[in-house]
Deep mutational scan, measured.
Amino acid sequence: MFYPNSPQTSPQLTQIPYGQQYAMMQRQIQQPYHPFATTEPQARLYPYHYQGPIQQEQGGFITQQSTAASPQYVQMRVTPVDQSIMSGYPNQTANGSSSSSFNYNIHPQQQQQQQQQQQQLRHHAMPVGSVPLQDDRYRKQLIVNYLAPDVTSTDLHELFSRFGELDGARIIYDKQTNMSKGYGFVYFCHAEDAKEAVERMSGYEFHGKWLKVGYSTNPLNIVPSNSSPYVHAGSRGAAG
């Protein structure tokens, strides 16, 4: 039997160049792979992502010199942007860049009308829970959420009447099932009393439920100042 490094198959040491006398086997001759043993700084910083320098080929596509990437890492192929796409944008300079302001050559009167329309939209648009300043009635009506099913309009009136005089209180019921929808409205005579009720009743436990109280901004629920107070009856038909 002959071994790869046996004296019968191995040459004389004098015939082997210096430095390879003890590297006779194939696994010894093959050098191990060192990912950080390279002179390129990109490979030292990113050993798993770097795959060699990027070269520009004919046709405008950018390719990489090395083989496919590892399945664990996804390499994105980048193509140059066609400058003709950006030619339609206004205020574009000769080098292809555009300024931040756009001039669509709008007539001054049209621009003024658009600004007025935007101001009107901001004036009428009102986020949930906010209180408008032009109508004091919005500051007097509250919406009470997360009410228990057994709470009546009379219970709601008695709960909030300790903060001040009320114009009314009612629970909203479903017309088909005649069941409470879980929320109601309270109408105060003074805005200061309503503000105190919002601050003190939010998070209050009532009939096993934690109440959420806020201003009601729905104009359909506003009680006119010259109208008669609501009837605080315990029956659902009268309260709904």
Rank of each mutant, 00 (worst) to 15 (best):
G60E: 04
Q8S: 02
H232N: 12
E158V: 07
Q72W: 14
V213Y: 06
G208I: 06
R27A: 08
D135R: 03
Q111S: 14
S100P: 06
L142Y: 06
R122I: 06
A169W: 00
Y46N: 05
R122N: 09
V131D: 03
E158A: 09
S66I: 10
G234Q: 06
L156K: 04
Q109F: 14
Q111V: 02
P149E: 03
M179T: 14
Q30L: 05
R77Y: 12
A148H: 08
G182F: 00
Y204V: 10
E40F: 15
P7Y: 13
R77P: 05
Q28M: 15
S228L: 09
F2Q: 08
I85F: 08
Y33D: 08
V223H: 11
A68T: 09
G88M: 14
G203P: 10
G203S: 04
P219C: 07
G168E: 01
G129I: 05
F160N: 09
N226T: 12
Y173D: 05
Q64D: 01
I16M: 15
P32E: 12
L211F: 08
F102A: 07
L45H: 02
A94F: 11
F185Q: 14
P127E: 03
Y46I: 15
S6F: 11
S180R: 02
L147A: 14
Q8M: 09
R44L: 13
V223T: 04
F61A: 08
R137M: 01
Q92P: 11
Y183K: 02
T177M: 14
Y104L: 02
Q118C: 07
V144S: 09
P71N: 12
E40T: 04
W210Q: 01
A194H: 09
N221T: 10
D150T: 02
K212D: 02
F36K: 09
L45C: 04
P80T: 03
A68W: 08
D82L: 12
V74G: 08
Q119C: 05
V223N: 14
L159T: 07
S153Y: 12
A37H: 00
G168D: 04
K209T: 03
H107Q: 05
V128P: 02
Y204A: 05
R27C: 15
A37E: 01
R137C: 01
L220C: 06
Y138Q: 00
E196Q: 06
Y146P: 09
Q134N: 01
Q176M: 15
K209W: 00
G168H: 04
Q75A: 03
I54K: 02
F185T: 13
Y230T: 07
H207T: 04
P7H: 08
I29H: 09
Q111R: 08
E196G: 05
H124T: 04
Q15W: 04
S101M: 00
Q51I: 13
D136Q: 01
V131H: 01
A169L: 01
G59S: 08
Q116P: 07
S10D: 08
F160M: 11
P35T: 08
G88Q: 02
N178C: 10
Q51D: 14
Q58S: 09
P32C: 09
P32M: 02
V131I: 13
Q113S: 14
V128S: 10
K181N: 08
T63E: 06
P53I: 14
Q56P: 00
Q8H: 10
A169S: 04
G203Q: 08
V223I: 10
V213C: 04
A69N: 12
P47M: 14
A69R: 04
A148M: 02
Q176D: 15
Q176L: 03
Q92W: 09
K195W: 05
Q21D: 11
R236V: 04
F188L: 06
G237C: 08
V81A: 11
V151W: 10
G52Q: 08
L147P: 11
W210C: 02
Q118A: 08
S70G: 13
V128I: 11
V78Y: 14
Q20I: 10
F36M: 02
S180L: 07
Q30I: 14
N95R: 10
D174H: 03
I29R: 04
E205L: 03
S235Q: 14
S228I: 14
S228C: 07
G19N: 14
I143D: 08
I62N: 03
I106Y: 07
G203W: 00
G88S: 06
P229A: 00
P53C: 08
F185P: 11
P7I: 09
Q115M: 10
I106R: 04
M201V: 07
F102M: 02
D82I: 11
N95T: 07
G214M: 02
S66N: 12
K181T: 03
H124S: 11
Q83N: 07
L211R: 07
A125Y: 11
Y18V: 08
Y187C: 03
H107A: 11
A125M: 15
K195Q: 10
